[in-house]
Design a protein around this nucleic acid. Structure first.
Lengths: 231, 231
DNA sequence: CACCGATGTCAATGCCTTGGACTATACTTT
DNA sequence: AAAGTATAGTCCAAGGCATTGACATCGGTG
């Protein structure tokens, strides 16, 4: 009667950082950010609740590794486009697509940068594109940060929203639309005026619009304007 | 010996939502996001650990109220500028200034929108500016969301970074700069080429650049180009 | 003046992160 | 091959947190 089904000890080497990160990502994808915890991760690995601490110094450290995995996935197989602006656009779109595919993971890793190899490779590609475009070092550095931060923050924000509990998310959307519709014509005439359009704004369109506004300005500043088109 | 200094019961009505939100904001400003908790907040109010639950349904509800307070502060005393693009710019800058003044609070309220009166007022002003600029309803709706989301997400991202533990923050910055300097000229030639400029990118300059790129495109699209200048 | 609902307090639950001590085991060294 | 050792997995425990439900007290109402 004694031991109520003690799980057999895992063999040595059963847990690797790679496996742990993969399992964490799967757990986040399946159960959401709120349900994620170190004990759960340990159990999902078939190990002790605290086993993960042998490979990562803490929860934070682990999440950083998950963030890097996301970026790896985002940039996998990427090659620069012929026109530099397309390269920038494509990298931004890849970040967003990956974050939307793993919203919980993206929401948790948040605004931290990882400087893993994936990120460095993307940085090099972006900076190369900007140098191609004719920008000098200082300006290229600034514009690289603008574009990269835009992609990460925008995508991260969208991901954070999608990783809210479904009811919260629904309530948020419904509440916003209601607030628009109910806008008082006297105190909020402009909201009232376009109240029918506000709920129809599409996230994809929003991102593409922001990206286009940003890149159009950069293309114009580069002097390439009219010579090449990008999409 | 019995009662080891029992705190006297608070008088009825001592706790109001307003006071609670103010105290929460102060606590966040002073001790940071990581140190914030419902028990601490209760104690800081001189009340029981669980007293706050009489006024807010939970932590989330409270943080939403804090977020709304931030926006109130951001838009306090604002009046539209003569030129519409200046109005947009000013609103964005105000959001950022407030978020940077309260990084922990901003980081916790994250990408949630509050639809409090402050937010609605700002929305109305922004949309009014865009209608002034000549945009039709659908485009005004999209551009409003682009500009508002940009301001909130960018500022929120910066705030989140600033609300990291000081050592983490320092390590992050130092690590990034180190990674740039150490970039291998063969595998990362472009990072290497501008390695001296990358650490010098200033957050204020970054935000202003992004804002300018965005608004310049919008001004251009409006057809106002050349007629008026904005800053 | 007795009620009653709102507001503050208390006690308790179940989860979490993290640290320290313990143990089995694969590799190393001879 | 025997012994030693560092590592990887396990166990246990401390301390904190969010939240809930029962209880107490107090102001206003009829």
């Amino acid at each position: 009667m004694s031991d109520p089904q003690r799980r057999p000890r895992l063999p040595r080497g059963a847990l690797t950082p790679d496996l742990i990160v993969s399992t964490a990502l799967r757990l986040l994808d399946e159960d959401g950010a709120a349900a994620f915890s170190m004990p759960r991760l340990g159990r999902a690995l078939g190990a002790d609740q605290t086993a993960v601490y042998r490979h990562f110094t803490g929860r934070d450290d682990l999440l950083l590794a998950v963030a890097d995995r996301l970026l790896q996935e985002a940039f996998e197989g990427f090659t620069a486009a012929p026109y530099w602006a397309d390269t920038l656009a494509e990298l931004c779109r890849r970040v967003r697509a990956t974050y939307l595919a793993h919203p919980a993971a993206a929401a948790l890793s948040g605004p931290r940068t990882t400087r893993g190899s994936a990120e460095m490779r993307a940085a090099d590609t972006m900076i190369g594109a900007l140098i191609d475009a004719g920008f000098d070092g200082a300006r290229a550095a600034t514009l690289y940060r603008v574009v990269a931060d835009f992609a990460l923050l925008w995508s991260g924000g969208e991901a954070a929203f999608h990783s809210l509990a479904p009811e919260t998310k629904a309530a948020e959307t419904a509440g916003a639309n209601l607030a628009y519709r109910a806008a008082d014509p006297d105190s909020h005439p402009n909201v009232h005026a376009i109240r029918d359009h506000l709920p129809k704004v599409d996230p994809d369109e929003l991102f593409e619009t922001a990206l286009r506004l940003l890149l159009d300005s950069i293309v114009r500043e580069s002097g390439d304007d009219g010579k090449r088109s990008w999409s």
